[in-house]
Design a protein around this nucleic acid. Structure first.
Lengths: 242, 242
DNA sequence: CCAAAAGTGTTCGTTCTACACCCATGT
DNA sequence: ACATGGGTGTAGAACGAACACTTTTGG
């Protein structure tokens, strides 16, 4: 029930990372094209979820809305990380026609603002209609500059883990050091020495031990910790040492 | 001689830092307003140089063009660092009218992409018509969110010094360690121990000693160095230790 | 001979790295 | 009893911080 019009010059694109215990994927959506065009395209018909914004809409709200429309995902925390303004983004005639057909507008120039988000694939239904998880290491050719965007998103995301404590957004409220370490490992693709890792963590006073341990696990139950955002903001002079 | 139209939805803003041996300033331009409005405004009539882009223009080209139009500065290397999309950017009626009058367009929503640049004030004419250098520590109230933008620009700039070797863009091709250190000091507002600084620098093999020394200086002539971009890209695993 | 910046080493504390074994629990 | 992850300590290397004096040049 939007009153404002679509803005034919501004779009958003979303890079949604999905992780589980072992792998990291990106969410891509199907692009429907007229069959004639389909034959011509050198690309797979997968793209990042994205689209035009409304004139009375914040970019981040547009990103959330479009993500929901295309993938049904809700409540994903989105972070802006880039701007795409090259003049040849629509140089593929099929791409432009597709946009004009799906929006009903005349499109000449679209600048796109890029967002990324992270979700746990385990918390989601097995499959999402008209969307697909693609492993970060198996990306095929994608339309536009979408590969570059994804790569850039991953870099920014890793920085945000360090600078903004973003990792704690995707951990449960109570977590073990092991969980923290192996979640990080998924995003960095490597696992460091766990003794040294523990030493580091214990020095970070924004990671607070609870008076509580794991229960019902088939091994020595682990100490649980929580993340104290306030202490992080105050104390840390920026940049965690992960 | 542009054929394309102004894009009423997209603008750029430029934060141009000017430095000399001792201080760091930002370039602001006068904003002409009808006298009636002028009386109402709580702001000084200074703003960041910025304006709408043309539809066939890259954002960075627009930024360079607008910077030149408003300040006559040419050839400043510009770096994108932010996006401004809040809905109340034009909630000050005077601001919106000013935009509509100067562009001749109906303006409802403008998203702005922010760029920063750095120039040596010594290399420029004493005064620039209708523009002013304002010391970074003496910023008065500015329209919109321009104060926040400037602050953000400075943070990003400091990061780019470390991550992208940006500092070497503003040093002469042949420079001394002292020059490097005191230039950094202007942007960080502090100067560290020079013995330790030298030790650090000597370990960076992308800072290469030349077979050449200063001449005609009233003190022991200093070793000159150059910056080797290729070695920096290859070797440095990102982030100089300044 | 003075002013001005160049250049140089050592010590001490901190942090980083590499590395191997026993512990508590559920099945 | 075994499988699973939880949890611990130490030694050596690398790094960062603090610190003061001599050198070379031009004026």
């Amino acid at each position: 029930m939007k009153k404002a019009a679509l803005n034919p010059h501004l779009s958003v694109d979303c890079v949604i990372f999905g992780y589980n215990d072992h792998s990291l994927s990106v969410l891509l959506v199907d692009r429907e094209m007229p069959p004639a065009e389909k034959a011509n395209s050198t690309y797979k018909d997968l793209k990042l979820p994205g689209g035009l914004i409304y004139n009375d809409e914040l970019l981040i709200d547009a990103a959330a809305r479009i993500l929901e429309e295309l993938t049904t995902l809700q409540g994903v925390k989105l972070n802006q990380f880039g701007v795409l303004d090259s003049l040849d983004r629509l140089s593929n005639e099929a791409d432009r026609k597709w946009l004009e057909q799906t929006t009903g507008l005349t499109i000449d120039r679209v600048v796109s603002i890029a967002y990324y988000g992270i979700v746990s694939m385990k918390d989601l239904p097995e499959s999402i209609p008209s969307a697909h998880w693609v492993d970060i290491n198996n990306l095929d050719k994608l339309p536009f500059d979408h590969e570059k965007i994804i790569c850039e998103a991953l870099n920014v995301l890793r920085q945000h883990f360090k600078k903004e404590g973003l990792i704690f957004d995707i951990l449960p409220e109570k977590f073990t050091i092991h969980q923290l370490q192996s979640t990080l490992a998924v995003f960095y693709g490597e696992k460091a020495d766990s003794r040294n890792f523990r030493k580091k963590i214990k020095k970070m006073d924004f990671i607070v031990p609870l008076e509580e341990k794991q229960q019902n696990v088939a091994h020595k139950p682990a100490q649980l910790y929580r993340y104290d955002k306030r202490r992080f903001r105050q104390f840390s002079n920026n940049r965690i040492n992960f």
